[in-house]
Amino acid sequence: MGDNTIQRNRLMYLTAAFGIAAVIIGLIVIYFSTGGISASAAIWGFIIILLLLALTAVKTGRKKEYYYAGTIIGALMVVAGLVLSTLTYIGGTEGAGSGMITGGIILLLICLLSLRRSPERDIRDERSLKIGTWAIAYSWYLTFFTVIVMFWLSYLNIVAIDVYVAMGVLVMLMPLSAVAFQWYFSGRGDVY
């Protein structure tokens, strides 16, 4: 077993441990919260932490089983989000459903796209690292520009943007634009 495999396994165990801890903490916070903003914030934080941990586990594991598991979890998140959206009588959970759906779609897309990739795509060479780095940089600039545009549209009362729409746009825009830029540069061969 190589050093990289040991390090990867260690990272996966760490991710799993943090995931379980996040679930327990999330459940405790939701249980003790009295509804309103604290419950909503707890659910949002819970969704974001779960999504980040799931993505880390999937990307570090790089095994088909993890991608299948990620696809199922993503689909379940979408279904759970749809169910949560209908349960409006639970105080403070407004918007949590859309967050769940957004997170589920991201996880689903990333796992499905990873499943379609050839095994050679897992080799991280200097070109893929360079393209990945530039894609994330361009994605950051695009998100920053979008935030500025949303601010001015909202500030000048041209469009009414509430916090859930803004968060949804950002959560979707960052990973999807990074993937899009990566795809574009990969097709061109280089970032210049």
Binding site: E120, I123, D125, E126, R127, S128, G189, D190
Partner: peptide, 18 residues
């Protein structure tokens, strides 16, 4: 130690290698 497609783009002169 690179992907095959890196060699493809190198041969086409589209990738500027280190």
């Amino acid at each position: 130690g690179v992907r095959r497609e890196t060699i493809v783009f190198l041969e086409k002169g589209k990738y500027n290698p280190s």
